[in-house]
Every structure is written in C-alpha cells, then in structure tokens.
Design a binder for these strands. Structure first.
Lengths: 341, 341
DNA sequence: TAAATTAGCTAAAACGATTTAAATAATTTA
DNA sequence: TAAATTATTTAAATCGTTTTAGCTAATTTA
C-alpha cells in the first residue's frame, strides 16, 4: 500500500552524488556551499520533475524544529475561541507554521495531558488558555526553553508572556453604564473560578457597585458543558434575588443560558431586567433587543499573541523580560441596557 | 537554552545495557522479548523517576506513524464547523491521536496547499471538508495510501469515504413545511457553488417548489468573508423579488446576514416573510422569533467520521469498498415559519 | 613550479527512536 | 557431560534528514 516515498538519497543516487550535496541544494545553500550552478540546476530540475518533498519528520528530528505551534484553548467550538483560533491559524500559516490545537473544556488534568502530548511532539511554541492549576506544567515546558504565550487569563506567579484585555476596566465601564441607565440592582453571573480574567471582571463589577453604594449580588456557577445546569442556577438565583434589575454575564455561554432563562421566565429586556455580557457574537448583536456587549478585538489580540510568540521563538526564551500586553476591549451599548428614567 | 533532553540511550547507559533493551521495556514488550522481570522493573522505575518521555518525532520516523490526523474545514470559527471540530478532537484524543487543523475559507488553492503541508507532516489520516476543485489533490493523497474521509460535501468522481447528511431530503421537508404554512413564494439563498451539499439542498428546494407549481427564486452569492457583501446581495434580491414571502438559507452565515438585512428593511418574521435555515445554533434558537432550522446531529456525524477513518487506518486504504454514509438531519420547526392561514 | 588558495563536492556523525537477527549465558535433555 | 534448548540481552541496520569537517582537483599566487 502506498507508493514508496522517494528520499534525498534516491536523488543522490540518480546523479551519482552525495546526499549532503542534494540536501544543500534543496535548502538553498548551493551558493554558500559553492556547488556549481550547473549541478544545482540539474538537481532542482529533477526535484521539480519528480515532485520530491523532504520528509518533514526526519527534517524536524535533525533540526529540532517542528514548525508547528500548539494551541490550547478552552473550547474550539466557542464563539470567542473559535474565531480567535481562526485568526491565529491564519497568522501561523503565513509564517510557515502549522497549528495543533486542543480544547481543555476547563479541565486541568486534561490540559496538562495535552501539554505533555504537545511537548512530546516537539512543537516549537505554545499558545495556552490555561485552566487554573496549570502553573507547574507551564513552568516545566518553559524550563525546556520552549516559548509560551499565555492568553485570555493570567497564570499566577509564573514568569511568562501574557496577552489579555482590560477586563476590570471595561467591566467597570459596562457596569457604570448600567448604573447610568438607571439600573439599581445589578447581578453578576460568573464562573466559580479563580481564573484571573474572571477575578478581574468581578473586580470591575465590584468597583462600580461600591462606588455607587449598591449591593453586590453575585452568582458563581461551576464550569460545565451542560447548558441546562446553567439555566437552573440562573433561574434559582433570580428567584432568590427578586430585586435584581440587571444582569451582567461574565462569559458568552453564561449569557446564552441567561437569555434562555429570562425568556422562560417571561422577563422582558430591558424593561424588567437589563442585560450586558462580556464578548460579542452574532446572537448578541441580533437578539431582540440587541444585547450590550464587550467586544474583544480579535484581530489585535491574535496579532499580539503571534508577535510575542515569534519574538520568543527567534530570541530564545531566556534573558528577555516577560511582557504583559493588555489589548483594550470596547463596550458596545445596545438596547438591552437602555432604559433612561 | 533548555534542558538537554534525556534519551533512551542515556537510560541504557545508566544501567549499562543496550538501548534496544530499554526500547523493548518501554514499549511493553519485555515479556515477549523475555526480558527479566527484575530488569524490567528497574528500568521502568527509573523511567518513572526521571520522567522520561520518548521523542515523538524519532519514534514516528522509525515507525512511520505520526499519530496525528489532519482536519481541513472551511472555517474553524463557524458555528457548525467549530463545534464539530470539538467533537472530532475529543474522539481523536480518546484514541491517542492529535489533531492538526486548518481552515480553507473556501479557497481551493489554500486547501491544496494545506493538504500538501499535512502530507509532508506525515499525518496518519485526513478529515477533509473540501472546496470544489480538490479532486486531484485528494486522489494524490489517497494514492499514497493515506486514509481520507471527506465530510459535509462529496467530491465528484473520487473514490473516497464520505460522511454527510440527507441534504436534499431534509431541505425538501423544510420547504414543504413552508408551503404547508401557507408561504407561496419561497426564495432560496445559497452559495454560488457546485459543492454537492449545496446542489443537494437546492435540489430539495426545487423538488418542493416544482411539486407545488411554485416559482423558483434563487439567489446565489459568492463565498466571501464579508458579511456586508452578503447583506447587500440579499437586500437587492428582496427588492427585485417583492413577491417573495419566505426565505430558506442554505448555510448559517447566509442566514445571519439575512436576519440582519430583514431587520434593516423592517420586515417582520414571519408576518412579512418566513425564514428557515440549514444548521442550528444559539442565534437561531434564541432569535425573536425563533428560527426554524435543520439540525445536523453533531455527535453522530463526528462518530461516523472517526469510525470510518479509523477503519481505514487499521485496514489500509485499498481493497475495501468506499462507503457513503448519510446521517439524517432533523427539522426543528419554530415560529419563524409558523403562519397558518 | 612549488605553495597557497579556491572551487566543488563528499563522508560520516547526529537526531532518537524501532526492529531484526544474533550472540551469550543458563538450563535441560539425552 | 556433550548437545540441545531456552532465557536474556545485544549489535547493528533503519527511518530521512542536517551539518561539520575535510578531501581532491583546479586555479592562483609568488
């Protein structure tokens, strides 16, 4: 089965020359190695003719570079991570890298296993959206000298490049906007997680509430794959906190569950309850009423991620100061929060 | 930079034994190779102690297996392809495979390049959502004996395993439902593409229209990344076909553009115009009014895809009959098409 | 015209495993 | 106790590249 693959050795044999010569020619080092133009042309012609492609793994084994980067996200099917993965992939491709991806679904052990697997595959660099508890695993990878960029959430106490957004500031802005619109009791629906981006968003909320002498009303749910669990928790939360007149959702999928719940409860947005959410997508834009969202700039984020990673790949991981790059998000105000009294 | 990685040779040296012995032990062949329990235990203990992991590439080079599969989809950020990619990845992982993915964005040349790249990387198998014109490239890969599963759309004239859904039948059912609801002039918005799934969906539409002696009113737009282009085309289409009282969208992103357009034009669903769409997602479910959709069974599809691929990986690509597996979709009727007269 | 330089190419080690064929040591068998 | 068998282990080839060090022949220099 399959055609026996031709190797550099076969080409060498064909011309009665050494395979090193062939290798040099193929890698564009003919001139530098002072190989005659004539031989170069003949070999290149033959390579073209038979459609020879060097064996990727063999090359990687010899050079120690795999030309691939490992992307570990929470969920490739998510309306935030999916599109950003697309952007990352596009950039990677344009620089000659392939992307190996994996979704953690928030599971730490899973994430650690994935990291191990990638490590064994010799990826040249990592882009990681880490669940909590990955500190050690990431440090281990870095100790091996591999470039790592942590994205979306920070890793506590780990010296590593990080790209994120102004979670606290923009959440604060969103909540202040709610206050200005006359909402008095803003509930905050988030994940029960110590992930930095969640903590920051919560802090932004608290900051706004405190400043207005309001009540903090927070629902923290466990990350799970099941939407109906989210719905039940939100429903119960709303029943226990009848006074709540607005909800801020800290992630898009929580908001999806929230919108369903509000519809089930026949609560009208924004008359009965205001709604805003972190992350933008088609649903929020086209929902009736359109939902006020916080939009992360995918293009800028992916650009920053990739530039940072590449710098590391080129420079090596040591000796350089680690950067924390914050790309600001944008508050998009829509009808779901407009209720001027 | 980086810690020098330990190799099988280092372990051999440590025990003053041959590296082949170490290799056998690590690969669980100690018994079969009659290596003493005692040595096996010592080596395994040491391996554990120092956390040795065999070099993936070296192993792949020696065995000819890379334990990775290449996934080529249209757009990993799409609300259909993203979630299905997640499912595929989960299955792959559970079988010990990694997934390398890439998005074509409908570009044939891009897809061919990706395929080439994957080929060079020695992936063990391919899952491909092919743009038109990939026939030859896919055949070439198959000639090399690599397992290929084509998904979502068929590849004309290529002998290859295919997993898809009952596009024509279910689209027919959806359109018949529109008819039954009293819609008289159903417009069909699709891609200007000869992709099989698009052709089948169109045929399902035509079948329903013909059967009811209706008028075929079809808008074929070019695949592009820009939503506003879609919107403009749809707007113009609606202006040129004032009589149209329902729209069926052949893909989710066309429908997103369509919903925006209808909103811009202040057309009410379903009073002014009915709406149905191929593929289900949060937006369609929660839109007001909820949109009638055709839901492809992600779980079953991914299962079928992976099972088919695995069969090929195990059996080799030759000598077996190629299968076309059709996993039926489900029509989910919602308010956007309910207008009984 | 001998020595130095340069042009053009090659041999062999290395990357880190797997795998086949075989060697050696211990134990049975006859 | 020599031959046969079995239990352990090993050497070396292989996978397909890259890369370092060096060789030979032609040319230039002195």
């Amino acid at each position: 089965m399959g055609v026996k693959k031709i190797s550099i050795y076969d080409i060498a044999k064909h011309f009665q020359i050494a395979k090193s010569t062939v290798s040099f020619i193929i890698n564009g080092k003919a001139e530098e190695r002072r190989i005659s133009k004539e031989l170069e042309k003949r070999v290149l012609g033959y390579v073209e003719e038979i459609g020879f492609k060097p064996h990727y793994l063999a090359r990687s084994l010899a050079t120690g570079k795999s030309n691939s980067i490992g992307l570990i996200v929470e969920n490739i099917g998510d309306s935030f991570f999916g599109p950003i993965a697309l952007k990352i992939e596009e950039r990677a491709k344009s620089m000659g890298y392939r992307v190996v991806y994996s979704s953690t679904l928030g599971n730490t052990q899973e994430a650690i296993d994935i990291l191990k697997l990638f490590r064994e595959t010799q990826v040249d660099g990592y882009i990681i959206v880490p669940p909590v508890g990955m500190e050690e695993a990431v440090e281990e990878v870095m100790r091996e000298g591999k470039p790592v960029v942590v994205f979306d959430r920070m890793l506590d106490g780990v010296q590593v490049d990080y790209i994120g957004t102004n979670n606290q500031e923009i959440t604060y802005a969103a909540c202040m906007h709610l206050v200005e619109e006359g909402f008095k009791n803003i509930g905050f629906v988030t994940l029960d997680s110590s992930q930095s981006q969640m903590v920051e968003r919560l802090n932004g909320y608290k900051q706004a509430i405190d400043q207005n002498n309001g009540n903090e009303v927070v629902l923290s749910v466990n990350y799970c794959s099941n939407r109906s669990d989210y719905k039940n928790e939100i429903k119960q939360f709303l029943q226990e906190h009848q006074q709540v007149d607005a909800l801020f959702f800290a992630t898009n999928y929580l908001c999806v569950a929230g919108l369903e719940t509000l519809r089930d409860l026949q609560k009208h947005i924004p008359e009965d309850i205001g709604v805003a959410v972190f992350d933008e997508n088609d649903l929020f834009r086209l929902f009736d009423p359109a939902i006020t969202t916080i939009e992360q700039p995918l293009e800028d984020l992916s650009k920053a991620i990739f530039q940072t990673l590449q710098k590391r790949i080129l420079r090596g991981s040591n000796r350089v100061v680690y950067t924390k790059k914050i790309i600001p998000s944008r508050l998009i105000v829509r009808q779901s929060t407009i209720r001027r009294k």
